[in-house]
Structure formats: C-alpha cells, structure tokens
Design a protein around this nucleic acid. Structure first.
Lengths: 214, 214
DNA sequence: ACCTGAACACCGTTCAAGT
DNA sequence: ACCTGAACACCGTTCAAGT
C-alpha cells in the first residue's frame, strides 16, 4: 500500500496524496486504511522506509574499494534514490527516521569509515553530515520549478548581486555538478579529519580524496 | 501579516497555520487575506523571506576576519535564525528561494570567498553546499520529537547495528556538536579546494581552517 | 466480529449579493 | 468600488448502524 501511495505521489505530487484517493486506488473503503495505518503520518513514515529500501540495491562497488569511493557510491545511491521518486526528499525528510532502512544505511556508511580508521563519533557525524547535505540538495532540486534561471536572471539583473551575476547562472541549477562538488569537499575534509584523529592504522594514508569521477 | 503567521507557527506548529486562523488573529475577514496574497504558498514564501531577513543582523564579525571565520559566522547565524523560529527549516526549505533576502545571504557568502581567492563557480557552489547542509541539519533537529534517543536505543539494541551501538547514542542528538563537526569538515575541504584552484593570491595561504571556536 | 455509509470538524479558495 | 456572508469542493478521522 505504501507502493500505491508512492505511485500516487509520482503522478500528482505529494499534495495530491489523500487518504480518499489512496483508498480509491486500492479499491478499499476509506476506513479500511485506518486499520492498516494509525493515521496519515504513519503512512508517510512507511513510504519513506519504502523509498530508502532501494538505496543499497543501487550501490555497485568492489568490497576492497577505498573508503572515499565507498562513501561516494553510497551518497550517489541515496541521491539517485531520492531523485527517482517525485518529492522523495520531502517524503524522507518529513518522516521520523529511526526505522529499519534508515538505520541500515547509516550503519553501512559508518562501517566503511570505521574500517578506514575513523573513530566512532567521527564516523557517526560524518554520516549525518553527508545525509543532511544530500537531503538539502535534493530538496532544493525537487522544489525547483524549471523557471528558476529566469527568476534568478530577473532578480540579479541590477548591481545588487554582483557575485551571482559573475557566475553563470546555469551553474546554480546544475544540480549534478553542485552535488559532485559538495560531496568532494566533504570527502576532502573528512580525509583531513581522519589524518588528524587516527594515531595508528595499518592502511597507508591516502592522498586527499581527489575528484571522484564526475 | 507574515509576522502574525510566524507567530501562529511558533505557538502551534506549521500544521496549525490556516488561512482562517490567520484571518482571525489579524481580525480581518477571510477573503481579505486573498487580496494580500494570491494563495497560501505566497504567504509561505513571504514568511520564509521574513525569517531569513534576520540572518545578517545576527552576524557580528570584524571586517578583516579570515574567510573561514566569516563563513563560520554566516553559517552559524543562518542556523540560529532557522532554529529560532518553530519549523523554520520547513518554512524556508519549502519556499521558492529566489527572493531578496535569500539572494543577499548568498551574495554575502560568495563575497567572502571571492575576496579569499576562490573562483566564481567554486564560491557559488560552496555557498549552496553550506546552505543545503544547514537546511538538512535544522530540518532533522526541528523534526526530532525528543523521544529519539529512546527510539534509537530500542531499535539498535540487537546486533544488527553494531556501529550505531558503538557510538554513544547521545552523540546522534547532540545537534550542536554535529553541526560544528560538519561545518568544520566543509571548511577544511574548501580550504583544500582553494589551494587547488588559486594560482596566485596576495594573501598567504592559511593552514587548514582548523576547529572554529566551539 | 467485521465492514461501511454517513457524518464531524475542519480546510483553501471563490463569488454573488449587499452596501 | 469595496467588503462580506455563504458557499464549493474538498480534507483527515471517527463511529453508529447495519450484516
């Protein structure tokens, strides 16, 4: 039933998801939904779980990959998963995130970092930081209307925003490049954090993470 | 009127904001609101602008501060501003962000980075990256119910999530520390990005940004 | 015991009818 | 020309009355 709800969101956006429409699409009576979910929020939580359940399946990576490559693959998989579902970021961001697939994802990220020598607290915060960054980026991308460049161009035309005017505005809405940049910056910063915090690892310190293939 | 709407959200949460209640709190008739705003989304956009208008006023910083200190001050001011308004992140994240105060904030961030020698595209993406990170963090913090540690403890009790179990769960909800960590990682990564991209600046390259005073 | 028609208490938005 | 009472077309949620 979470799948049917996600299909409704895919075709009409999150606003179009109503308990009545979901009941109709499932050919059940409206009160029947309330025996499956306590309320609409419980349905949305389940939808968030369903969306996230697809993430690990998207990760294709050798087990002996560098930690930065593994984190990159996980981050990309999460972003792609959110983008694949209309309003995916709003669904996931609005749910209470302590259920199974959320934990599995965080666990996997932390595992890669612990193996690479990160302390437990750093590994935890690194995964929450990456998660927040991805959520914020996809939220903005999925909220973009397509007319953003036009609106920006109009707003920026004067002399009040010289720096926005200096960068080609297309860069602002090049969400793939924005994401790659931000992720690379995070990984470079994390590598420095590891060098600072690890006293001894059997792994040779690798050079700053470097640009992941773009 | 955006202020009255924000006050309603402060006292009852975003769900409690309805056009009818807003009209009542302003002692006007319901249709009168529709002469001020085309619809509820336009009201929400204005509320987002109003929230963001407070950011720059929170920044207290010498003009000759290091770029990393300036970015840190701006990021902290934005986070504090979002946290100060109930559901502030949802309000700002749900609005179309090409209006005045959003642009001014982005402009200010880019100015600090351009002065420090960053190229225009890097300065632009750095500010969007930081913005996304902050929005994601505050979104999660403001969505937290208080019972999160309990829920996490219950979910994590078994052997399925050893890495979550390894880090004290209190770290997960120490949002101040999480934010400081993520911001520091971003700044360290950006410093490396600057070193990579700048051919010549009159400023002496500073050592990796280092922990901002916490 | 289960299911359902119908209702309750709301929404955002619009508009004809009054002044 | 402006304002407003009242309505329209919905919501999420609940429950009495039927089988």
């Amino acid at each position: 039933m979470a799948l049917a709800a996600l299909a409704l969101v895919d075709s009409g956006g999150l606003e179009s998801l109503t308990m009545r429409r979901l009941a109709a699409s499932l050919s059940v009576q409206l009160p029947t939904l309330y025996r499956l979910f306590d309320n609409k929020q419980a349905l949305l939580d389940e939808m968030a779980e369903t969306v996230l359940s697809g993430v690990l399946g998207r990760v294709h990576l050798a087990d002996d990959a560098e930690w930065a490559q593994r984190i990159t693959a996980l981050a990309r998989a999460l972003r792609d998963t959110l983008l694949a579902q209309r309003d995916g970021a709003r669904i996931v961001g609005g749910a209470y995130t302590t259920k199974q697939h959320t934990l599995t994802l965080g666990e996997t990220m932390q595992a890669s970092m612990r193996e690479a020598g990160f302390p437990a607290d750093i590994a935890l915060w690194a995964s929450t930081t990456i998660f927040s960054f991805i959520l914020g980026e996809v939220l903005e991308q999925q909220g973009a209307t397509g007319g953003e460049v036009e609106a920006l161009t109009a707003s920026v035309s004067g002399e009040r925003y010289p720096h926005f005017a200096a960068a080609p505005l297309a860069l602002f809405v090049d969400f793939d490049a924005r994401f790659d940049f931000g992720l690379r910056v995070l990984l470079t910063g994390l590598e420095a954090e590891r060098a600072r915090s690890t006293v001894d690892t059997s792994v040779q310190p690798s050079p700053p993470a470097g640009p992941p293939a773009t």
